[in-house]
């Protein structure tokens, strides 16, 4: 799928996630960047925040990535009791695996042979960021937010996923306090693979519902 990012190889001039590096420190200072610097300095000077807290928060957010969700999915594929706990309370199941997800209220929705789940937030861009890290840019676009609830199948085709009619699509609009993660179906031909091998098949998009796991 064109938007899935492969961790296993890098293109020249591209970041590990397969995107071009974007200028940051060397571009002309913008009004909004000045506002960020000013807000940060004022909040530190007034004792609300410390530079260490800000650095630690950035580090904690950087440490969150789709790999966390992939580990949860792989565990659910190999451990039926864990799968049951995940579907009952995905926050507790994620914490049980040692992930610091803060106050995240997470619901896992399971793909099966006849059900495919898709996650969106039409009102803003709610995303299970405390487990999967920050959302991809397309998740926050007008096109995705507008269309995913009315023509999910057409949207999925744009992501390279053409679902047959007998598969029911269940779209989940994150309108309030819950966040969602798709538990994708375990691919065929993965018997005998261990959790780490299985986790490597799980893509970010397969946990949003816009993709499927890799096949071995």
């Amino acid at each position: 799928m064109p938007h899935d990012h492969h961790d296993h190889f890098h293109h020249a001039g591209m970041s590990p996630s397969g995107h071009p590096y974007r200028a940051d420190n060397d571009t002309p200072l913008s009004y909004w960047q000045r506002m960020e610097i000013a807000v940060r300095e004022l909040m530190v000077e007034k004792g609300h925040l410390t530079p260490a807290e800000i650095a630690a928060q950035i580090e904690a957010m950087d440490a969150r990535s789709p790999a966390n969700g992939a580990a949860v999915v792989a565990r659910a594929w190999t451990d039926p009791a864990f799968r049951a706990r995940l579907l009952k309370n995905a926050s507790e199941a994620s914490r049980e695996m040692g992930f610091d997800i803060g106050p995240l209220n997470l619901i896992a929705v399971e793909n099966t042979a006849d059900t495919h789940n898709l996650i969106v937030c039409t009102l803003c861009s709610c995303y299970p960021r405390n487990l999967l890290g920050l959302p991809p840019d397309w998740y926050k676009t007008r096109a995705y937010r507008s269309r995913a609830v009315r023509e999910p199948r057409a949207v999925l085709r744009e992501f390279g996923l053409d679902l047959p009619d007998h598969v029911t699509v269940r779209v989940h609009d994150s309108t309030a306090d819950m966040r969602y993660i798709v538990l994708p179906a375990r691919p065929d031909g993965t018997d005998g693979m261990d959790e780490a091998q299985l986790a490597a098949l799980v893509t970010r998009d397969s946990m949003i519902g816009t993709g499927l796991p890799h096949r071995p």
Partner: peptide, 17 residues
């Protein structure tokens, strides 16, 4: 901002770090 169901073009797939 309440844009669910409105007409829109293809989903732009480009991203950035």
């Amino acid at each position: 901002h309440d844009m669910g169901g409105q007409d829109a073009g293809p989903v732009p797939m480009d991203g950035h770090d």
